[in-house]
Design a protein around this nucleic acid. Structure first.
Lengths: 137, 137
DNA sequence: ATTAATTCTATCGATTTACTAGGAATTAGA
DNA sequence: TCTAATTCCTAGTAAATCGATAGAATTAAT
């Protein structure tokens, strides 16, 4: 399941994607528009900024705007940024790989092979969902 | 990601699937064989029993054994039993459906449609992974 | 009865989650 | 330069969840 953070991030990005080019959205505006607790959203937007999905203008009349094309922001990326690995176990993960601590024979985790199949399919599906694909759905 | 419980459950089922027909496995035997904390495994086996994947014989010479064919136990079922919904949000779930609380227009959650596509693909993949398919991998 | 096993209930500590609070830093306009 | 509006940053917190443990009750074979 997605965390609230990830869900809110998607909704915030969706909100930003729906605005006119060059429009700068204040946090409060996004919070109201997408029904997200404002202070919580602040943190999320900062995370999205660190992840280079959005950028911001500070001070009066400041706010946030997309810096990545809505066609290029995928569910997979947002999942990784907020909720980490897409694979079901660390030993089956590409970006968050860690060996199993409880597998007797390191390289022969009985679950790994099957879970890597799942990961590949899930990942492909998640890369197919972009912010653009969600707009006006 | 899978919880430890779900992971241990899969490993326990795998262990049981590898035993001779009619063999009854004690908890301690499974725990040692699959490297699972014994007391924790107890709970997991009880959950698996409630889920009708295994059954048990009590008392001396008691233990656990599979009552469902290893071809019919899928990753999807184990995920649902221990970790709940396979979908990324409750509003996109088949078995654990709940409406979003933060979506303005109930039936028009902006994420729902995309997440249902993911769910369908992930579910299909997870239903393809059975205990039998994992044995000797 | 004794022994060895499952079953059941309760609890614990640590971590994570979902927020909230308060204020510092930054910017623009009056 | 002052003020208002905004982002940015650091803590803190209540609740839930997770991973695991403890111990007593129950059951069955000998």
């Amino acid at each position: 399941m997605l965390s609230h953070k990830a869900k809110y991030a998607l909704k915030a990005l969706l909100y930003l994607a729906e605005q006119d080019e060059n429009h700068i959205s204040r946090t409060i505006e996004i919070a109201d528009g997408a029904n997200i607790p404002k202070k919580f959203l602040e943190q999320i937007l900062l995370d999205l900024k660190r992840g280079r999905f959005v950028s911001s203008k500070q001070g009066k009349f400041g706010g946030y705007y997309l810096i990545k094309s809505k066609n290029e922001i995928t569910l997979a990326e947002i999942h990784r940024l907020f909720d980490g690995a897409i694979a079901l176990l660390p030993c089956a993960s590409l970006n968050f790989y860690e060996p199993c601590s409880d597998c007797k024979t390191e390289s022969e985790c009985s679950l790994r092979h099957g879970l890597m199949l799942i990961r590949d399919k899930t990942l492909k599906a998640m890369e197919g969902i972009t912010i653009a694909s969600l707009v006006n759905k």
